[in-house]
Simulated scan of single mutants.
Amino acid sequence: MQQTVLDRVDRVAEDVVSLVLRGADGPLEPWEPGAHIDLHLPNWLTRQYSLCGDPADRASYRVAVRHDRLSRGGSEYVHLFLRRGRPLQVSLPRNHFPLVPAPEYLFLAGGIGITPILPMLRAAVAAGVPAKLVYVGKSVATMPFADELLAAHGDRVRVFATDERGRPDFAALAAETGPRALVYCCGPASMLDAVEAAFPAGRLRLERFRPAARTFAPDTEFEVACARSGRTVRVPADESLLDTLTHVGYPVPSGCREGVCGSCELRVLDGEPEHRDDIGAPAGRMYACVSRALTPRLVVDL
């Protein structure tokens, strides 16, 4: 956990504020484009936000938060109550959406989905790699950092305000994109679905706000042995592993509780997990908020 102080709150678009978090105890942990942090709010909620500042700046982190009108308490608190000077705890950066080397990039962003893409574009340009950004939003006024991007990158950035121009033709974009280009996309589900239909899967990297709809076998009870503590617990069919562990006194850090942030990662020592996350758990790991078990028993490093 890292201690920060809220140094700046700036309105960067309609219903979007940028937060600059200054390290309270010296330099913050390093990060790379695509990384995110968990922000621990004073109302006891934890929310995940992509880092959208400069990775070379070890003194502070920058995130952006859109005010969700159906907020579960996170974005609403940020917009209505957070003020400059507030101490805030943040997690170490995690990256499930890394920018991997490629001879060319096409970046696609929808609305607040610009946040992980912004430092990616900056890094690609700094490395001298050909890169373009197609940035989509309802209107320019709703699109955070649009002016910043246009000022810094000029013709590399194409802004589509759908209330004026409609959505881009993603099939046409795919046809004009070089065959060796990697395509990175973050945005609302409807945009990601359209992009998935247009671009080859092997060249596409996606980050979702919400998990994709999928069907799994019915939930069943299973047993979990906590190797370090020596305790074994039963996970009922109607309860998540995360909730069960919390109820028996082994709380696991968590953020989204939907399998998209990775904050509740556990190391699996034995047994086979049923992975239900949306980010692809690495070998020997699982995310306790959504994943279950394919074997009657799991052993975890807890």
Rank of each mutant, 00 (worst) to 15 (best):
M1K: 01
Q2A: 12
R8V: 08
V17N: 07
S18K: 05
V20M: 07
P33F: 05
A35R: 11
D38F: 01
P42N: 06
G53S: 11
P55C: 10
P55N: 13
A56M: 07
D57M: 05
R58G: 06
R58T: 11
A59W: 04
V65T: 08
H67M: 10
R72I: 00
H79M: 07
L82Y: 05
R84F: 03
G85C: 07
P87K: 01
P87H: 02
L92R: 13
P93G: 06
P93W: 07
N95T: 04
Y105H: 09
F107A: 06
G111N: 07
G111V: 05
T115M: 11
T115K: 09
L118Y: 11
L121C: 07
A123M: 09
A127H: 12
P130L: 10
A131Y: 00
V134Y: 06
V136C: 15
S139V: 05
A146Y: 06
L149D: 09
A151H: 14
A152S: 15
V159C: 12
V159I: 15
G166I: 12
D169L: 12
A175K: 12
E176S: 14
P179K: 06
V183F: 13
V183T: 14
G187Y: 10
S190M: 13
E196F: 09
A201E: 15
L206W: 06
A217S: 11
A227F: 05
R231W: 08
T232M: 03
T232C: 02
R234V: 14
D238T: 11
D238G: 09
S240D: 03
L241I: 01
H247P: 01
H247T: 13
Y250R: 12
V252Q: 01
S254M: 03
R257H: 09
E258P: 04
G262I: 15
L266N: 00
G271A: 11
E274C: 00
R276Q: 03
P282R: 13
M286G: 00
Y287F: 15
Y287D: 00
C289P: 12
R292F: 00
V299K: 04
V300W: 05
D301M: 06
D301E: 15
L302K: 01
